[in-house]
Amino acid sequence: MKPELLYPCLLLANGLFTLGLLGLLLRRNILLTFLAIELMLNAANLNFLTFSRYHEEPTGAIYVLFGICLAAVEAVIGLGLVIRLFRQHQNLGFAKLAELKW
């Protein structure tokens, strides 16, 4: 991989992450915040892969593999939780899901 590609790729990952952050802050539905989290996860994956390619070392790439797997598990568990929440509250908006407040 050409070294010049490093910084643009990092910037791209950063941008994706920031968009995920923005989504997390702005969206008020638990499902959509989930989407934002997926975005952030992918940004991290991209970072891993970029550096792995850059250093020609497989460790980072293996992490990407693990990351994707974890994302799958997380999505499964998270969506399961979403379904449970929906069953309980018939709603997925944060305005209603304020049970952290006692």
Partner: peptide, 14 residues
Amino acid sequence: LQRGYLPLYLAYFI
């Protein structure tokens, strides 16, 4: 500051 509203907590965290 703590009204159980998740994005707000997130904002603190960030």
